[in-house]
């Protein structure tokens, strides 16, 4: 079916590659940041500890910094000679100029959006329910898994979708950190940018723009439907 669609849209092989790469990069970025995102959101929402304000600021930093700056900082840190990149290279892990690096850049750029949505939904969970669960004998981890997590699931889902959408559109940090290599790091935005820079590329740019809009809409719709179902389940009117 995929080939039929690409033929019907008249997509070039390079464009198809860019679409699949973008979906892969965005999915990996979203899935990989779910765990840390949830952990940090929970810490910020429920715990008081020294350095909390600093952590809060650090998480939101990519939202405020110019994406190019974030990308350059990533290049400095994760580049082959960078402090983290050189250590990772010892284990054969190279991020710069690889699609995995694009995923890292997208994950970091989407992280503030994800954490913010998750944190708000965890804060909205009635703490008195968590207390009631504790008095019934549930350990803190059990309270989190059986009360906090299920009740904040719509917000967690919303955070994941936001991060995915952000990752699909991430451009500045990605191109700075991993460049624009077709087949390796050329995601949808990079491909659109490239097409707009060459004569006769307008048609391709338009096709990819349409695809971007469709993917983004599909993601938002899917999450909206899921969140509504979850909310119904929580409210209990099945």
């Amino acid at each position: 079916m995929a080939t039929a669609v690409t033929a019907w849209l008249g997509l070039m092989p390079d464009e198809v590659t860019a679409i699949w790469l973008s979906i892969k990069v965005a999915s990996v970025a979203t899935l990989a940041s779910l765990g840390p995102g949830l952990g940090i959101a929970y810490l910020l929402a429920r715990k008081r500890f020294p350095g909390r304000a600093l952590l809060d600021g650090l998480v939101y930093l990519p939202l405020i910094l110019p994406p190019v700056v974030t990308g350059y900082l990533l290049l400095l840190a994760f580049g082959r000679r960078g402090p983290i990149g050189s250590v990772l290279a010892e284990f054969g892990i190279v991020l710069s100029f690889r699609w995995t690096g694009a995923a890292l850049a997208c994950a970091i750029m989407g992280f503030p959006l994800m954490v913010r949505a998750m944190r708000l939904s965890i804060e909205a969970v009635d703490r008195r329910l968590e207390q009631a669960a504790a008095t019934l004998g549930a350990r803190p981890l059990a309270v989190f898994l059986t009360v906090t997590l299920p009740l904040s699931l719509p917000g967690i889902l919303a955070g994941a979708v936001l991060a995915f959408a952000k990752a699909m559109g991430e451009f500045g940090a990605t191109i700075t950190f991993v460049s624009n290599i077709p087949g390796e790091t050329q995601t949808l935005p990079s491909a659109i940018y490239t097409l707009t820079q060459v004569p006769g590329g307008e048609a391709g740019a338009l096709r990819l723009t349409l695809i971007s809009v469709v993917i983004a809409l599909a993601a938002v719709l899917a999450s909206e439907i899921l969140a509504r179902r979850l909310a119904h389940r929580i409210a209990g009117d099945r």
């Binding site: 009635d126 008195r128 329910l129 207390q131 009631a132 669960a133 504790a134 008095t135 019934l136 004998g137 549930a138 350990r139 803190p140 309270v143 059986t146 009360v147 299920p150 009740l151 389940r233 929580i234 409210a235 209990g236």
Partner: peptide
């Protein structure tokens, strides 16, 4: 609190809204 084995009935029921009555009883 979770190891005191003291149960509390609060001013409001504080039932877990995402579970049925049977599941709420089962939670305890």
């Amino acid at each position: 609190a979770h190891r005191r084995r003291i149960a509390t009935v609060f001013q409001q029921p504080r039932l877990l809204p995402h579970l049925t009555v049977r599941q709420n009883l089962g939670y305890g």
